[in-house]
Write a protein that binds this DNA or RNA. Sequence first.
DNA 1: CGGTATCCCAGGCGATACTG
DNA 2: CAGTATCGCCTGGGATACCG
Lengths: 122, 122
Amino acid sequence: MKCEKVTKCRLDAVADIIGSKWNLMIIWHLRDSTLRFSELQSKMCGINSKTITKHLRDLEKESIITRTVFPEVPPRVEYTLTEPGRGILPIIDAMLIWGGKFRHPVEGREGCERNRIASAGE
Amino acid sequence: MKCEKVTKCRLDAVADIIGSKWNLMIIWHLRDSTLRFSELQSKMCGINSKTITKHLRDLEKESIITRTVFPEVPPRVEYTLTEPGRGILPIIDAMLIWGGKFRHPVEGREGCERNRIASAGE
DNA sequence: CGGTATCCCAGGCGATACTG
DNA sequence: CAGTATCGCCTGGGATACCG
């Protein structure tokens, strides 16, 4: 039976990486600077450490980011985009542009749902 | 606390559409022709009708595809990409190109996981 | 600090059956 | 043909707690 087009399956594979919200965000946040675990976590609306770890590991496995551990006393781990990883940036840009063109601007006031509760009083 | 960048949240929204494997595939298959429900379904490794229906409805709601019902005796429903929808095509292209550049070609023999079972031998 | 382990629920998706 | 309904598994991901 098999799928009639390989294209589709390729797409399928690529979508596993590009298709994940979290992956996209990690890559995006790493766009112009190396970040540490905690920095990433806080930038991403306080995403769960379990979740972020998983995606970080995936991206590392896919050679999209590199993970550097500094064996210091207060442990430090830094994440950086690799070259292949940087190749995704233009794609994200395109997505954002598309979003800007066809979707209503979304003022930004609503932020992400995840910390609407946290910012409660706000 | 709030996310420091709106960009991220935008990305989040766009990822809801572009970030879904199925959505991507539907859009891709519609790239150069209108297709009927069953055509789409068979092109996509025999994806479940429930699943495909859901995504089709989502995309329709987002004005990425249009759904045309022909009130004929054997019912016919056709799906077509809208203009905004076509705007996603270049992005998918970029994804595919990226995939081709940085990931090993993936000969295609493995097809999609979903019917590896069907092709058993593996 | 940077995780891992555990629990748990909501949702995604497949299979199957049924309908207009 | 083009769905909808139901069931049931599995993963994603949040919360919490603990560790090197």
